[in-house]
């Protein structure tokens, strides 16, 4: 793959649509887990694909395209959160308790964890998303976010400790 897209015409649009369908869940999920708002996440994800179409970056392979999309999705999500002030820190007390579901405690815990992720600081949150949604290694996260690997490692440990502490407190409350 020399470029993400062929130069012009009908083929270009068809090829682009195929790229969107192939990667929409990845881009949307990064934005959704970061913003925790479906409409804002959709807007951010659309912006990412629009940027891909307009900038037509020269991408050498499918892996390069995925890397580019992840990177731009991260930046766009952070921009969206900052621009719309969507991300005031939400305290645990302000997060509504999930309704009890037939799946039991595990499903509730996952739902809770999902909500707890948005209580993390912005950089830490994105690192956690890239690690556990995308399954990236620390070095890959560092490349996507443009920060040192050591920072990724320390932020990830910090984020996990925060999440674990909050989750344990919640489990304690639920079982009490």
């Amino acid at each position: 793959m020399k470029s993400a897209l062929t130069p012009a015409g009908q083929d270009r649009a068809a090829e682009f649509e195929e790229i969107v369908r192939r990667h929409q869940s990845m881009v949307f999920s990064i934005a959704y887990h970061y913003l925790q708002d479906r409409s804002a996440a959709e807007e951010a994800a659309q912006d990412v694909f629009l940027q891909l179409f307009q900038a037509a970056p020269v991408l050498e392979s499918e892996a390069h395209l995925v890397f580019w999309l992840r990177k731009v999705a991260c930046h766009r999500s952070i921009d969206h959160a900052r621009r719309r002030k969507l991300w005031p820190r939400i305290g645990l007390d302000r997060i509504p308790e999930p309704a009890s579901t037939p799946g039991g405690e595990d499903v509730m815990l996952r739902e809770r964890l999902n909500r707890l992720v948005r209580t993390l600081p912005e950089k830490t949150r994105m690192i956690v998303i890239l690690r556990y949604q995308e399954g990236l290694e620390l070095e890959e996260i560092a490349k996507v976010m443009g920060i040192p690997t050591g920072t990724v490692k320390s932020q990830l440990q910090r984020g996990l400790a925060m999440l674990r502490g909050k989750a344990e407190r919640w489990i304690g409350r639920v079982r009490a």
């Binding site: 969107v20 996440a41 595990d106 999902n114 556990y132």
Partner: peptide, 16 residues
């Protein structure tokens, strides 16, 4: 559990 919680989600229908 965290991995399960952060699983990829499909965008709303008609996204593309």
């Amino acid at each position: 559990e965290l991995k399960e919680a952060l699983k990829r989600r499909e965008p709303p229908p008609g996204f593309a």
